[in-house]
Amino acid sequence: MSVLIYVNHVNGNIKKSTFETACYAHRVAQLAGAGEVIALSLGTVSESDLAALGNCGVSRVLSDTNPVFNRFDSGAHTKALAVAANAVNASVVVLSHNSSGKAIAPRLSVRLQAGLVSAATELPQVSGSGFTVRKSVFSGKAFADYSINTPVKIISLNPNSYPVTRGNGTAAVETFNSGVSAADVKVKVIETKSLSDTIPLPEAELVVSAGRGMKGPENWGMIEELASILGAATACSRPVADVHWRPHHEHVGQTGITIRPNLYIAIGISGAIQHLAGVSNSKVIVVINKDAEAPFFKAADYGIIGDAFEVVPKLTQALKEFKSQNA
């Protein structure tokens, strides 16, 4: 028996989410008495990078370096994962609930006839044959505990839900042939575009977000400056993306992206229920709004009642001083 994880990498760079799933899987294996944690890597990743997954408790990495995997096809990646899951007799498979996980996990659930809980936020409760996983539902307005009734279980873990703690183990890297061929790849990737040099929003630990209170796109310079001092990603409310002040991929909320960073700073955002739905699971929320009655203050940990055009530059200055003292 074993717990299998999927190595998520972009051009050979292993994503932080993979380390989250590795640490999570390590704990799941202990809780469920499920043996060792094994990782499957598809495409080209350096052996030393793969061996470093041992830091999070992975004992072996199966590496299928067939170049067909360097372009993402959900069907081909699913097929390889299913072959690996059977080869290592996996009783649990863990993926990240990010864009690749969302494409693979549901396919794998069908292929392995294994119940899937997606967007899991906590470790499973295991008792006898019972296996229950908590996930966020109603766009962050509630949690639900799902029992998985099948022998093999699949969990896709919400990004930023499980801490990465590194030891100093080393995983053994083994060559693996999943039997997937070019004929299994149905999509032809034309190009990939990196959205920005900054941190991708879904995995960001710190987020600075702004709304209609900023009055126009020309005023986002101060938001970007604050974000860059913090090393934070930028986000926005829906109307701001709708009128193209900011790109669509920054839209957070019930109909945008759901995020749960360690710190969410909301500037000039009223805190409508649909906005809160996507951000309320953030660990710490700061609200800056000139209206003391703005509903967002009810969902905040810290608040500043004031004009963003005055408060934000002062806050940025204070952070600069803090950073220079703590550098």
């Binding site: 998520n8 972009v10 989410s17 993402f72 690749s100 032809k188 575009k193 959205l195 991708p200 995995e203």
Partner: peptide, 11 residues
Amino acid sequence: EIEGGLEVLEV
């Protein structure tokens, strides 16, 4: 959408 970016593909 892919992690940190966009992908253009044909199918």
